[in-house]
Amino acid sequence: MPRHVIRHGQVIGDIWQVLVPREGESPATAALPEGPLAVSLDVWKARREELLARSSPVGVRLEPADDPAQIAGDLPRLALVAVNFPKLADGRGYSTGYLLRRRYGYRGELRAVGDVLRDQLFYLARSGFDAFQLREGADAHAALPSLRDFSEAYQSAGDARAPHFRRRAAPAGAAS
């Protein structure tokens, strides 16, 4: 059965393959599978030219400790940035999402992968993620309503919604 992801609020089949070198495997020599491929940051750094020369889309998969500044200049050429959440409670990826969207202007698919469950979707979406690959075995269709858990938000975040106080009808004479 093909894997599924949630993208833009719909469950779709996943076309991407992921290359993360195994223990002892060199990023410089690991075999690159055909088709759309997302690679770990070390592979990206070692094989950037080779990957960009391929005809199929390329992406990068970041771990919680990876600094997204390292791929900031490449973002226009990446069709996917996946951010791994090895543990649900490790919230570093939320800041990664914010930085990719708001600081580095990334506009492609931003996908949360790993230990991701429906109960995290709303915050992930607000942090700039537009795609979600749930933990193995989780029901993606059942998760969709969680994207709409809240109708409003007070503060600005990775999704670039203005803070609520800026969207209120400003009282007469109010200046910033």
Binding site: L88, D90, Y94, S95, F122, A153, Y154, Q155
Partner: peptide, 16 residues
């Protein structure tokens, strides 16, 4: 109160 609103459901800082 402004801090209460800002911190409530802050999506980036819920898993510190």
């Amino acid at each position: 109160e402004i801090l209460r609103q800002w911190s409530t459901f802050h999506p980036e800082f819920a898993y510190l």
